[in-house]
Design a protein around this nucleic acid. Structure first.
Lengths: 232, 232
DNA sequence: CAGTGGTCTAGACCACTGA
DNA sequence: CAGTGGTCTAGACCACTGA
């Protein structure tokens, strides 16, 4: 283990164990140099890493203190559905229901970014695993941002997988909730209207440019999101 | 902007724009030193940061290459419910339904870590906003890990807020899905059995020690999780 | 204005590993 | 075995900012 890793780990341990409380002052770089008998670059590397992880706050002249509270942010796995289903050992299929090129409409309830994007590709379809439908999807794609998608064949590949391969997003926002199945698409999933479904709405960007908005409804029990935080 | 930041940003830009494709070789540290006219520590700082962010993979002798695909991990905000509701300007309340100290039972469907933890505090209750119930919660807390929680007053503060204040977790795992309301608790939420609910199961650890398992059911529409990725 | 962190240099030795 | 990254040193100059 490198020395800078050892320094980082020891200070991290004192924070997690509560020996160092939020607001407590951490020794200055000079003091840590003396304590560990190393150069300033080495302690700086450890402290910079802890600061980047949100455990420390550093201010010139004032020194380094333990950050108020570890931010409760988590890592959420949002896998490509096709990949995830294949990983379960099931046969993935995307069944296209409809595909239109048209301007945005008020009832689409789009965000500003897409509503102003000009022509959209509107795609609807069903994701299935071993021929069992598990999710209904409605997707809007900005043709300004992705003109070449008009050539894509969605009987071979889902729109999501196609986009991931051709123009991976750099920013995304997901909204996750629950919803009773709507009559318009309940039949597509072989469920009764009102049945509980997991609802995911995802917006993606590439830099400043809006790419796509997708709304997916998963049959309850068919799909779970997992979010982990920490060393695991 | 520091030089190492500029180097990092330029390489990052080439990856995000597609100029550098996954698998492509990035110039070696020596080449970058010559290109930017700086020392090796400076280019190393930039490359180490990009490697830590998952955009580059570095191997000795083989050099540095663009990573296969930016990992699709997202930052998920999992706020304290009390804080979140207060932020909306609503009055938060936790109504305790039951509180027992007992050993684990098979029907609890606990994970190994808690099932072996010895005595548990089992708490049930309802979270409400402006006296409207929005979530039902069942929680198991390891008394081995948190003996002092027997003194807590859950008419003042929810078990979740109490735990956050007293022994914040260091690791957590969330499972997020949808479920139809069960007759046992549907009435607590003033909804009909079978109504769609968002289901969150969260396990937390403090270091190696299992702390709590909580299962929450949110009335559809009352609560959304938001996950963001990228610069936003 | 003195202490702190932010950044950078010009070296060094080493471990790894693929040509 | 030669090129690469991983780590570290002993300095340096600077910007910031709170005592």
């Amino acid at each position: 283990m490198a020395l800078h890793d050892r320094i980082r780990t020891e200070i991290e341990g004192q924070i997690l164990s509560g020996t160092l409380q939020p607001g407590d002052k951490v020794p200055s770089e000079l003091e840590l140099m003396a304590h560990y008998g190393c150069s300033r670059m080495t302690v700086s590397k450890a402290l910079t890493a802890l600061s980047g992880a949100g455990l420390l706050q550093r201010r010139k002249r004032a020194g380094t203190v333990v950050a108020p509270r570890p931010t409760e942010t988590m890592v959420l796995d949002v896998p490509d559905l096709a990949v995830e289903i294949a990983r379960r050992g099931q046969a993935y299929r995307f069944q296209l229901i409809g595909r239109d090129i048209r301007p945005p409409r008020p009832e689409d309830e789009l965000d500003e970014g897409l509503a102003r994007a000009g022509l959209l590709l509107f795609v609807r379809g069903v994701h299935s695993a071993d021929d069992e439908p598990i999710a209904y999807e409605e997707r809007f794609i900005s043709l300004t941002a992705v003109p070449e998608i008009t050539e894509a064949d969605f009987s071979v590949e889902s729109p999501g997988s196609w986009l991931l391969r051709h123009i991976p997003w750099t920013e995304a926002e997901n909204r996750i909730g629950a919803v009773g199945a709507h009559p318009d698409w309940a039949a597509r999933l072989n469920i009764a209207p009102g049945t509980a479904c997991l609802s995911i709405e995802r917006k993606t960007w590439r830099g400043d440019e809006r790419i796509t908005l997708v709304r997916q409804k998963f049959v309850a029990g068919s799909f779970e999101l997992v979010a982990r935080f920490g060393a695991a």
